[in-house]
């Protein structure tokens, strides 16, 4: 075995430049995915048949096909269908957000259903309208319970963001591959980005722990 980390040292800043790219995809996707997932979860628990049905079909389609396929369709098929040359960032964020919303909506739905129905009745008996009740009473309690599951989903998003390397975006993984091709060294750059991903996930985990601790003050 003959590792030559010294040889890739000059390329490390270039690889690290992908950090921002990866984070950008992850944060935007997580934000929109959560928002859309929350709306979908409300569709699923609503009494309006068409919304409910939409939520269920939506989830089955986006969970039932590979993410990389969804990404490819959005990136490559959009220009063909609509003549709009979709930027990779947009395509990536749309694909990830649409996909993770399917998963998140199930998590949030479960979280909402797990909140004691007495909370709903108490809010109703005080005359609190549905929207306010959901935002101020039900969602905060549901959120606290599903936080670990949401952290899981964010971690998955962070790692899945590496798929954008397939549509030509220079994220962490893609940059490592480029350095490999230039230096004919594979193990070193790949191991290095592996470490970067791992550290990112760890800091996310720690941040989530802190948030969870803060939410537990009412226990």
């Amino acid at each position: 075995m003959n590792l030559q980390f010294g040889q890739i040292a000059p390329s490390l800043p270039y690889i690290l430049g992908g950090l921002w790219v990866t984070l950008q995809f992850t944060l935007l996707s997580a934000f929109f995915g959560f928002l859309w997932g929350a709306i979908l979860s409300l569709f699923k628990i609503s009494n309006i048949a068409i919304l409910k049905w939409f939520g269920i079909v939506y989830t089955s389609v986006f969970r039932g096909t590979p993410l990389i396929l969804q990404l490819a369709i959005i990136y490559f098929a959009t220009p063909q269908l609509m003549g709009y040359d979709i930027p990779a960032l947009q395509a990536g964020v749309i694909a990830f957000a649409l996909n993770s919303a399917a998963y998140i909506s199930e998590t949030i739905r479960a979280g909402i259903l797990a909140v004691d129905k007495g909370q709903r009745e108490a809010a109703m008996s005080l005359g609190v309208p549905y929207r306010r009740m959901m935002l101020d009473i039900i969602m905060p309690q549901a959120f606290k319970n599903i936080l670990p599951a949401l952290v899981n989903e964010s971690i998955a998003l962070l790692k899945e963001s590496a798929l954008v390397s397939t549509i030509g975006v220079a994220d962490l993984l893609r940059r490592a591959n480029i350095v490999s091709a230039q230096t004919f060294l594979y193990f070193e750059p790949l191991l290095f980005v592996g470490l970067v991903y791992y550290l990112l996930v760890m800091s996310l985990t720690w941040a989530a722990r802190g948030l969870e601790r803060r939410l537990r003050v009412s226990d």
Binding site: D116, G118, Q119, E121, A122, A123, M124, S125, L126, G127, I137, P140, Q141, K144, S218
Partner: peptide, 16 residues
């Protein structure tokens, strides 16, 4: 309902 208060067996205070 704003004019009709209700008290429940299991209180149902908002825990958060």
């Amino acid at each position: 309902r704003q004019n009709v208060g209700m008290v429940f067996q299991h209180f149902h205070l908002f825990p958060h």
